[in-house]
Every structure is written in C-alpha cells, then in structure tokens.
Design a protein around this nucleic acid. Structure first.
Lengths: 246, 246
DNA sequence: GTTCTTTATTCCTCTATAGGACTAGAGGAT
DNA sequence: ATCCTCTAGTCCTATAGAGGAATAAAGAAC
C-alpha cells in the first residue's frame, strides 16, 4: 500500500480500489503507452506492498472498465481501442450477396474555421477557438453509406491541415495516431432520427426528406479529455441495432 | 466439489466454473425462486467441498451475468428483472416542463389467433400454434407514446384471455407473474426505422408516412425459453439513445 | 415507548501460499 | 531445416484463515 499508493486516492477506500486508481492514472497520463505491457503482477505487488491477490483484484477493475486486457502467459496490456467495425454497429452494410465489404473513406472537403459554439463546448474548448472541419463520405462497395462531419482542434491536429486529401486513407483514428500522436481511448455516441436535407440526400444517394439516422460521437483520449466530435448521417432503412437487456 | 458438482458440467473446467454452472441450473430450474435468497457462501462452500473463495468466484460469474445480486450483511439473491423504465431507454418521454411522467398502458384489442409463422419461430413454437395477441397503447401524460403488438402462447397465458381489459394495469410483466406465474428474466431488442402506416399513425397521433422507430423485443424466462414477442412503434422524432463504446 | 447496545449472520477485504496453464524463446535431436 | 524439449516468465486457479462492514433482530436502558 504505502508510498506509491498515497498519491491521490482516498485512503478510506479499499486498497484494491486505491491501487486501481493508481494504475488508471498511470495509463491516463501516458506513463504506460497504449498497447504496451504493464509490469507483472508480482512486481506490482512487491512495489506497492500489497498482496498478489489484491493487485489482481485492482487489475480486474480496469479490465472490466476496458482499460487493460490480460493474456495468460504473456502479460497485462494497455488496451488499444478498436473502432474499425463501428460502422457495422448500427448499419447493415453488406453487399448484395451478403458478404461483408471493407468500407472506404473519402474526404470531400476540409477547412479551417472557428468551432461552432455547440461543438466547442463538447470539446471543452473556448467558443470561437480555431477548428479543423472534415466532410467525409464513407462508402461500402462503391455505394455511399455514411456522411460525416468531423471537428477537431486546429492546433493539435495541424498536421491534418497540410496532408494531401488522398493520403487520409480509409480509417481516421490510426491516422490521428500516426500524424498527430492522438490516440482515441473511448467514445460516447448519441443516436437520433432526422430527415435528410438536400445536400445530405444528394451525397448519400437517397431522396430529400427521407429518414436518416444521426449518430453524434464524442471521442476521448487516454487522458480523459474530448478530442474529436463528429456527426454522421446514414439512411434509416439501412439501420439496425440489437441489444440485450435485463 | 464432488457429488453436487458432478451434475452436468465438464469436469475439465475450473471448479468455480462448474460451481457457477450448478448454481445457474438451480436458478433456471426454479429451484431458487426469483427474488429469494440463496444459501450463504459458507454453507455452499461446506456443501460443495469448495473453498469459500472459490464459491465467491462462482457467484461473481452469475452476478456479472445479472442472475444474482449480493447485499452485504443480507445475503445473495436471485435477481428479478426490472423493465419498468425500458420505455425511457430509447425515447425522450418527458412532459413540457421536462418532468418524468409515469407511463400508462391501455389494451386496445385482444384476440386469440394462430401465431404468425415468424412469431411462432421466434417463440420456438410450432407454426400455427394458438396465440394470444394484445394491441396496446402506452401513453405518457395522456399523449400516445408507443404502440405495441404483443404475442403470447395462448395456453400458458390463458388467464389473460379472460381478464377484463381494465384490470391489465400499466405494467404487463408483473401481471404475467401474478396471473400466469411467468417471470421475465431478460430480453433482446432489435431497433430499426420504418414509416408509419395509416392505422399506426392515427393511433400515435402522427402523420401517415412519418418516420417511426420499431423495437422488436423477445423476452425470455429464467428457464431460458422465449416467452413473449412484441413489436413497438414510436415516433422517430422522440427517439434518442446514447451508448458508450471503446 | 423509544432509543441504545449487543449479538448473530452474511458478505467484503486482505494476506499468504502452492501449484497449474499458457507463451515465448533457447537449445538440442533428428 | 524441422521438430522436440526444456526453462523462465507470466497469469490463472485454488486453498486457508483473519478481521472488517453492513444488516437485522433481540434485549437492555432510559
């Protein structure tokens, strides 16, 4: 327990809680990089003075929270978020034959502009701060599937303002990491239903006024701070989402 | 471990897994009723010959699965599912002042009829088996919010075919339990978007052809068998659903 | 009668320890 | 080269036991 544990946690909390808070802060502050292995349980136990079982319990909390993954015989790793299939979470995007198709991403427009007030607030930036806005179309098998409007902080993502549009590739989050050192840890999404405006409809290849599902996403880094805000539109007739409740 | 554990589980599995399988089967077979307390950990440990920590681990599995809840100082209980706020999971249903309102349920129609093939399949019943169908309107503050079409197996829910429509009350699942001894343990839901037909639109008080969110729900009992199928329609402009992803 | 104390029961936290299972890599046998 | 064996490192399973915390109910004190 002692020295290393007294960092910030409430000492009235159980040791395993204090320990998991400690590990969590190490991860959030980038002390352990995403994808890397954290020290073995035995070492953590020795360092912190807690019993092995207590360390395991602390790690379990973070595994349940999705921050760590364990692999027997290999170690415990800081989890890298994987959004590669997030398109398929809500939309049925298969070809005529039912086969899964790799979605493509195409940047339609890019511009620097002051962040809209609502976006700035969600990104925890001051209103009017400079932002980078990307209009993006995602295609599945050459058919438009999703239209996206993405806002980023201009300063942190300056590299993207210069990059040729052809070099953006099909996935943005790996690009953020490569070009700007920004790693997405988690995101929240809000789903609503609306109707397509003229431009949206044209780009998606649907009738103006047709129902669309709108997904607002706020993506956070490992430091817990919001990083990207995006709004996506998809044809409602392609939408399907299943959940388990109890 | 021994005697009591050898029931069905694969003996190559860890003891805590075998134990959780055993407890699960006890619950699913109604050996321990929903809401009731299961024997204390110490007693289970003694009965099964496993160590206390192993029993706790087994119970933990079922707690994570939502079958049990623990209460320090009181005991461990078979969880009763609570669907009372499931309406609010997907729809913003507040009054003009933003206050939450208690939803009402009103049965519009009831009839005995052969189950449609698709419904019979989902309920694991033979096609053409006799079913009980309920058309139900859910209101929030006197305004129509959700239209539901519910299918049940006629035999098991015979009591509902006789009950005066006024006596159904606002919540169905407690009624199933009172009148038919059928307890809902969990459910799966599938969300899609469609447009309102003439009848649906009229009953929901929206324009014909307006977008609606369709929720198909299949509810299961503690024995793991499907019990009720229902399809709900709600105005799409009231729909909002948020999730956390990582 | 109300309030406080005590006690029994139950789940929770933590320690300590031992052996098993899985992975990766080094080194030897064929 | 390929396959096998061995070893070290790591997480996983299981045991035993001590004391803490929350609950509920019985009994004592006022």
């Amino acid at each position: 327990m002692h020295a290393s544990l007294s960092v910030a946690s409430d000492p009235r909390l159980p040791i395993y809680r204090q320990l998991s808070d400690l590990l969590r802060s190490r991860i959030e502050q980038g002390h352990w990089a995403p994808g890397s292995r954290i020290p073995p349980e035995s070492e953590l136990a020795e360092q912190t003075g807690a019993a092995l079982g207590t360390v395991r319990r602390a790690i379990e909390v973070l595994v349940d929270d999705g921050l760590l993954t364990r692999q027997q015989g290999r170690g415990t790793f800081v989890r890298k978020a994987d959004f590669s299939n997030s398109l398929f979470r809500f939309f049925r995007m298969t070809g005529e034959d039912g086969a899964l198709l790799m979605p493509q991403g195409r940047i339609l427009a890019r511009r620097l502009a002051p962040l809209p007030a609502a976006v700035a607030e969600r990104l925890s930036l001051r209103p009017g701060a400079e932002g980078l806005c990307l209009d993006r179309l995602r295609l599945v098998g050459d058919k438009p599937a999703l239209l996206e409007c993405i806002w980023l902080e201009a300063g942190r993502f300056a590299a993207l303002a210069e990059l040729p549009l052809e070099d953006f590739g099909d996935l943005l989050y790996p690009l953020y990491e490569r070009a700007c050192g920004a790693v997405v840890a988690r995101a929240t999404e809000l789903l609503t239903v609306g109707s397509a405006g003229a431009v949206t409809a044209e780009r998606l290849g649907i009738a103006p006024g047709a129902a669309v599902v709108v997904v607002d996403r706020l993506a956070y880094g490992y430091d817990g701070r919001p990083m990207e805000w995006r709004r996506s539109w998809g044809a409602a007739d392609k939408f399907a989402y299943s959940i388990e409740i109890r």
